[in-house]
Design a protein around this nucleic acid. Sequence first.
DNA 1: GGCCTATGGTTTACCGGTCCAATAAGAGGG
DNA 2: CCCTCTTATTGGACCGGTAAACCATAGGCC
Lengths: 334, 334
Amino acid sequence: MVTMQDVAERAGVTKQTVSNVLSGRVAVRPATAARVRAAIEELGYTPNLVARSLATGSTRTVGLFVPTVGGSFYAELIEEVEDVLEEHGYHLLLCTTRLDGERARRHLASLTSRSVDALLIAGDRDLIDHLPLLAGAAFPVVLCAWETEVPDRFPVVTIDYERAGYLAGRHLRELGHRRVAVLASPAHTVRIEGFRRAFAADGISVPDDAVHLAPEPTLAGGVAAATAALAADPAVTAVFATHDILALGALEAARTAGRRVPADLSVIGHDDNPEVRLARPALTSIALPRREMARQAVELLLRAVTKTGSAANSLQLLRPELVVRDSTAPAPGA
Amino acid sequence: MVTMQDVAERAGVTKQTVSNVLSGRVAVRPATAARVRAAIEELGYTPNLVARSLATGSTRTVGLFVPTVGGSFYAELIEEVEDVLEEHGYHLLLCTTRLDGERARRHLASLTSRSVDALLIAGDRDLIDHLPLLAGAAFPVVLCAWETEVPDRFPVVTIDYERAGYLAGRHLRELGHRRVAVLASPAHTVRIEGFRRAFAADGISVPDDAVHLAPEPTLAGGVAAATAALAADPAVTAVFATHDILALGALEAARTAGRRVPADLSVIGHDDNPEVRLARPALTSIALPRREMARQAVELLLRAVTKTGSAANSLQLLRPELVVRDSTAPAPGA
DNA sequence: GGCCTATGGTTTACCGGTCCAATAAGAGGG
DNA sequence: CCCTCTTATTGGACCGGTAAACCATAGGCC
């Protein structure tokens, strides 16, 4: 292993001069710099980043927690995070929590030991209980894609999920739907609130028994919830699914129930996931600015790394957008 | 920042003794150990992993290169890699190359600087040109999910893609198909070879003009290639797509061409991607043991890390499997 | 009682960089 | 020609651990 000392000896200078040439922070006479560079070249020297990290206290690495890498939501998030980090010369240390709080805790503990300069936590599912562990963290932490109650103390960059639900509701209301059902994952209460607000403007309420929970966000779960919804109230003319995959289940349930989408039944999803683009009719959905969110979160994080101490507790909400396709239409009677 | 020295002073010992307590490699009197542990607890000490890495020469981090994180193939691979690493107490540093050779090279260069203990490279698309850079790497490198010609010098854990093509061909042949077409991504020549071998056993050849290339693995690309294939030879009774998404395109093209799947036309895909599970008819495909592959690759890698110097150039091929669903059926005339 | 050996702890020397104060060499001014 | 002021280079301390050699104490044995 060739070290800076080796380069220095070969170039006839001290280690410090080699360091100066590399960092460029201190002036070095051109002739000397050339000698040093030649020595580096000849010996094939590459600086030891670990040693540098120890001396500077910065690893130029950022940790990212995600619940999973499957599914386009987190996949896009990861890619965007990596892009931004790369632009700034940082590395990405990835930890998936996999619905396993204990695993999350272990990962958290080991990252705390100064192996990362900052931490981005996406998705609240598994880590929420262990956030207090981070209270004394020596590095900045930012949360993103956070839907449930936000623990103060950390800045958050997330999506206005309430508005996402509202957009879905407003769309259906404007199409004349009055009797609607909701298929929801248990954690999506905020989206439902927004959905209700849209109807409340017209004095219409969405009763609790119109909300059908799907324990898992799967096609089968969507089918089951939708079937239950249609059975519970055959008069519904529209369904809002808080997750695209549940919406697909609704499409299938409608088909087997003999109801045509969108003529008899409108279906609107949430997330605008690319992997459901293949479904027919094409799904109307709520698109989320995932990449934008990821970018802003990372940039906030990196700003906090450089200006240590700043980055007060803040909340940044990004706006979702309605994407109208073929699965929604005016209510039959309207 | 509380250091080992602080703990040592508080416990009335030297920092080496603290180190011994933590590592457990050297015997420490129980009473002393208890004092040290108490001091650790009181001060909230956590060891500095960077300093440890510098001293030991090991970062307990493994780098993983993938072309992208989108798509279930690499997503599952990443998850499995992380699982295995976690079992062994290693961290995951993720780099995506994104069809960008230059980006790949940059990442490679920075990881070479001893910030990882080992490197796993999955997918040959972008890094193949830069592998020579790794020739002098001080850490083990393993390639996986490698389809094209394997550069010697590195161990490879991959899938027997030739056999995958063969299984697809054999299935169609056994169903009585004689006149077949192939929809392929440009890089999938090995799969096509295997496909041909299956037919060659019966003296049937698959001519070059029955192979239709799709430049990008997209639905549209599949539709275009399939449409071209059906136009070029209306007599084909079966289509092999080297990628599931292309197979979906074939389903769509068949529909618009008025051909029923599987009655008039059999379609077989490759990869058995979960994201196409929604398609109807359900796609017959070739399943790849992705998780198994990832696991074996990482374990090989970690073995090479511990027993330095070993891990000679080896090639490990994992067996794909045929998964028969509803998109293939006996040839019309058979 | 003297010698040998465990056992538990300390000392000293790294690992490979960066940071800062000190110094040597030139340039410019009086 | 001497003194000052830059500018380029050097030396040593330091980041926070680990590794190995070394020392002290106590117990076992003849």
